[in-house]
Design a protein around this nucleic acid. Sequence first.
DNA 1: TAAAGTTTATAAAAATATAAATAAAGTATC
DNA 2: GATACTTTATTTATATTTTTATAAACTTTA
Lengths: 410, 410
Amino acid sequence: MEPENKGVRGSQLKNMIIKKLYFNKAMSCAGLSELFDKSIPSIAKAINELMHEGFVVEDGYAPSSGGRRPLMYSVKANAMYILAIALDQLTARIQLFDLLNNPVADMLTFELKLLNNSEALGQLLEQINIYIKQTDIPKDKIAGIGIGMPGFVNVTEGINYTYLDAGGQSLTEYFTDQTGIDTYIDNDSSLIALAEQKFGIAKAQKEVMVINLGWGIGLGMIVNGKLFRGHNGFAGELSHIPVTEDGALCECGKRGCLEAEASLLVVAQKAVAGIKQGRITSLKYNINDHSKLMGDAILEAANNGDQFAIELLSDAGYKIGKALAILVHIMNPAIIVLSGRGAKVAKILMAPIQQAIHKYCIPRLSAGTELLVSELGFDAELIGASVLVMENFDKSVKAKVSKAKKAIAK
Amino acid sequence: MEPENKGVRGSQLKNMIIKKLYFNKAMSCAGLSELFDKSIPSIAKAINELMHEGFVVEDGYAPSSGGRRPLMYSVKANAMYILAIALDQLTARIQLFDLLNNPVADMLTFELKLLNNSEALGQLLEQINIYIKQTDIPKDKIAGIGIGMPGFVNVTEGINYTYLDAGGQSLTEYFTDQTGIDTYIDNDSSLIALAEQKFGIAKAQKEVMVINLGWGIGLGMIVNGKLFRGHNGFAGELSHIPVTEDGALCECGKRGCLEAEASLLVVAQKAVAGIKQGRITSLKYNINDHSKLMGDAILEAANNGDQFAIELLSDAGYKIGKALAILVHIMNPAIIVLSGRGAKVAKILMAPIQQAIHKYCIPRLSAGTELLVSELGFDAELIGASVLVMENFDKSVKAKVSKAKKAIAK
DNA sequence: TAAAGTTTATAAAAATATAAATAAAGTATC
DNA sequence: GATACTTTATTTATATTTTTATAAACTTTA
């Protein structure tokens, strides 16, 4: 009876509603009306259509604020699904979520070396297709694929300049073509920041700095409520900020860079050196051990009270705090979140970081910034990948229309 | 015949058009339609009304881009006026502009000491009222008053925490009430940044850092095309970033802060000390000279080739460059603009600043950022104050309506 | 406990914006 | 140099959106 598509305009609003409900759990017509600056009848019409289409469900009445109670609406969890993928240098994780961020299939983890591995791209695609097939969910029910990855990522072009070279071709185009599902990519630290701001400890905050403590030291920046990437997408390069005069030589050629002084990899190297010099510690150094394994061992040992490990991490924490003090001066964030692999020793890091911030910040600035530890932990990047897809959800219709027009023009 | 007010909705679009034409000189119906995502008839209707109301004029045809030439529309220069005010610690400037940023009356400059001067507020108000009366332009023709001032400014509350205390009352409310004209305030460095991005050398750029080289070292940040102020409005606090280990003691209690090492005031003090020690220079040190006068003398001397002055400024420039290197790592700006009082020696500062940026930045980042010198110079703050008013122009109608509603509710 | 004031929801009429058709004024192509 | 194609502008019919009025559900106050 009704036309299949009611034009870009109407479905634009509906997509905006779905997106908002994904992020905000439940809202009333009145609330959405206020938010989008549309009349209540317009919202009510859109909501009714969305209910008929199976995207939205009624979700009970909210408490009254002095008048008639609003009927709340939520997104229907299984209306669509999102495929989230998190890569680090060595491992890939794939996980399908529903619209309430619940996993709807077991997570798939597999080794995927990114550095100098020309087959990585093909391997990842293969695993994605296998994973989707195995979940038995039709592809058109998957709203999109979000991929978080280390390296310098150009989000608009969909290219990673560091890893996963597709011969200059856009990675997003590659995956979109090969899977038939809209794909979006971003830097791992950026996605962790996104996750913390949408569903984590920095929820709804507008100025948030998220530190990704891993083998390197990453920074994801939320500025004015949105991911900030800078002019060329290279913003947040905290790793090469100087924290000591004439310190260790960094790969970049300078001395005293944060990454060369305080990354988990450096801490591990210092641990190995210390053991060789006979430091008493519960850490065992095996000549065959990869320093990345040593890194994990240090986190364990520190949490178990090993003095040497704690000492090393405290030293690293103080230097991180010094860099954060500079960051606070420039950005004046509401919240700094410690996230990533190193978040599990956050309790040990907190004190020296906070101490350095207080020492190196003018009080007015340090007083305005709260230092918090991630609660999402290891899941942050996957959640962030999921968020990335939904962030683009309301844009997709318009983009597709203009894309189609361009294609026709050719 | 026609109703006076055609509702918030229609006039909202018209205000958006006026604002856009103020910033962009001339645009066509088609261009505005694309920009605001409104149909051409809607735009045409609004434009016609604006022409009847005397806000907009036809501005000839633009060259064809392969079809019928678009008829361009511009804002009518004398449709409204803007009162721009620029304060520094010692002096106030008042200037009335038309909508093409042309001065429509002589600039008024007068001494106004901000520090520990409880009468400053009243004096400023008096001069404003005198100035307006003298121009003979009716108040309802003045779109707003924009005031730039040093100190920590809370823009939303309209309060300056450092100067011009109005007993906790909002400065914007004070001036709006006392003059009958909507007033907006902001930090001087922020307004300089705004001016550079709208009408200066960084025009239309989205990621811009503007350095206000004055007695202190200020930073105005344009992020994602908009002024960035941070969570508490304190962002861009470049002055207390460490640039030397164990350097000069700063007012803030730390050592080696940029401001304590490289501000114009410090350079002046170093000059005085150097002369006392017998350095050969064209600079003359009079025991009665205020060090601020010495600062101006140094700028002169350096431009005239005085080696000592150049040496002092080069040293300061290198330290500023060191701080900018950090800024570039974090913000990845497209452009850094040198502006403010010190811009007149920019040619001397450029080399050491650029040198330090190259030395302390990883190449990928320094390559993406251009270092430029302001062309607006001393006018920047006034232009910025004018921009501030127009930035708020499209918001005002809605804000007034909601404000009026609140007032009625009481 | 009744009355008054809020907030939310729905259904009608009224206002507004848009798409489609048409015209006008160019450029590019053969 | 005529024809086809672009881009811009105007008009009209169509579609959408909002206002206004009304009702419903609830809190607060007298």
